[in-house]
């Protein structure tokens, strides 16, 4: 791994998780305030996360196994916020605390 590739790869890995966090944060806030624009921005964040994962797969010198793991992680990111939200809603409704 070249010195430049080291920094590039690390930054891309960090940005991948940050974009995932942006997706989760915007999705949650958008659903909370019922603002479709925020949910759309959340989707854009997830697309950015996927693009970063693909960039990691194409550009960086990581081993193939790690590249697959990174891309699969980015795909799994798509599911986590909506699934968590649905679970929370069900749980809170069952407790009489629903929105």
């Amino acid at each position: 791994m070249t010195p430049a590739a080291l920094i590039e790869t690390a930054v891309l890995l960090g940005l991948l998780v940050l974009a995932g966090g942006g997706y989760a944060g915007l999705y949650g806030y958008g659903r909370l305030r019922a603002r479709p624009a925020l949910v759309a921005a959340a989707t854009a964040c997830w697309i950015a996360a996927l693009a970063i994962a693909l960039a990691i797969a194409v550009v960086t010198p990581l081993d193939a196994g790690w590249k697959v793991l990174v891309v699969v992680s980015a795909i799994v990111y798509a599911v986590i916020p909506p699934a968590t939200w649905r679970y929370l809603e069900r749980l809170h409704v069952a407790e009489g605390e629903g929105p």
Partner: peptide, 28 residues
């Protein structure tokens, strides 16, 4: 190398759920 890298890569996943949970609870 494989075990540590794989399971460490999984660690951010539950944290995404925690972000959603905190926003939900904060709003509620």
């Amino acid at each position: 190398l494989g075990i540590g890298g794989f399971f460490s890569a999984l660690e951010p996943l539950p944290l995404l759920g925690m972000v959603i949970h905190s926003i939900y609870d904060a709003g509620m």
